[in-house]
Design a protein around this nucleic acid. Structure first.
Lengths: 192, 192
DNA sequence: TATTTTTCTTGCCATATGCCAAGAAAAATA
DNA sequence: TATTTTTCTTGGCATATGGCAAGAAAAATA
């Protein structure tokens, strides 16, 4: 008994006809990354849309002072992409790197465009993915202003505990906008 | 000699055929707002996509402690929308309010969908608008972590001086993630 | 113009978080 | 297992920014 294709969890029977599923899945190719491999380097133009099947991935930027700042973490089921670079065809400021060995499914820009303009459900879903990313970023952005570091950490702990278990403290710290020193203290404070 | 329709600056001859322009423009309606009018209340579902022809608009959220936090400012040529609420058809957390008397052009969700799925250039442009918003938000989000408040203010001063001239200090302060007290001091420091 | 309301500035002090550096713990590698 | 490297914790001190409150300035309204 063959295992169903991972992407059928993404392009579900409910939202896509069998024909559409076949067309879409045929455009994706499997991509394996080793721990520390880069999926994207800053300065390059993002040419892929990835779905993670297995593993952990991190995106980050390097600021003017040379500090590495984590912008996001990705795992099973997540879309990995720099939206701006992919759609605007412009050089990215971000780096995307595998934190563990990973298996992904990728779609290049040309195939994406073709599916986007020919399959209604595909573009609806693509738009929804982008809007969901926008919403997450907005929530994070508001939390940076409205909440203290401790609250931001607790929130992450509640909503994405698997991230905390698989990503080093220093990466989580920059994601939360604090230093690893402060995060260590917050962690201590909470555990008491 | 009639003045060309404002929306022709948005849906330009270069990107849209005369037919497409006519179809698109016919779906928009003019909307005027008085100073302090709300375009959107938190808890409601955003049903419009607006382009600002004239005036200043602000979006903001109210945090748990009851603080009003500005999330964005809009003026001539800008798209005013809560992307998540509009596309996910979900209640918004944001309020959108006119800071001055405004004239806008609006498109409701149903008409948007119809144009999005029938006109290729319209969906390309719609996607680009969303991606540009995403990019701005990302830049702001990184600046909140990487830059000091003073640098964020200077950056706003350089890139959006018209905002500073038309929005009160307290609203700019919350947008920058600081108190009006701190912004007043930063302003003083810079002017010296 | 006079009056009220809102916005902005400034002083004082509090505090969350940063910076640096040392050591402990854990993980990776030989 | 031993060794090296990386990650995490902790202490001491510095600083950016907040909170509060009073007054000044500006804007709105009568």
């Amino acid at each position: 008994m063959t295992q169903p294709h991972f992407l059928k969890n993404i392009f579900t029977d409910g939202n896509f006809s069998a024909d559409e599923q076949e067309t879409i899945l045929s455009k994706f190719t499997a991509a394996a990354f080793k721990k520390n491999d880069y999926l994207l380097f800053e300065g390059k133009v993002e040419n892929f849309y990835w779905f993670v099947q297995e593993g952990y991935i991190r995106s980050f930027v390097v600021d003017i002072a040379g500090n590495d700042i984590s912008t996001n973490f990705y795992t099973t089921g997540d879309v990995v992409i720099d939206w701006a670079s992919f759609f605007l065809r412009s050089p990215t400021r971000e780096n995307i790197q595998a934190l563990t060995d990973c298996t992904c499914w990728q779609l290049d820009f040309e195939n994406f465009q073709q599916l986007f303009h020919s399959i209604r459900s595909f573009r609806e879903q693509g738009r929804t993915n982008l809007v969901n990313s926008y919403f997450s970023l907005k929530s994070k952005s508001i939390a940076m202003i409205a909440d203290e570091a401790k609250d931001r950490y607790v929130n992450l702990l509640q909503h994405k505990p698997h991230i905390l278990q698989n990503v080093s403290l220093k990466h989580i710290a920059t994601y939360l906008g604090i230093t690893d020193t402060s995060l260590s203290r917050i962690r201590k404070e909470i555990s008491i």
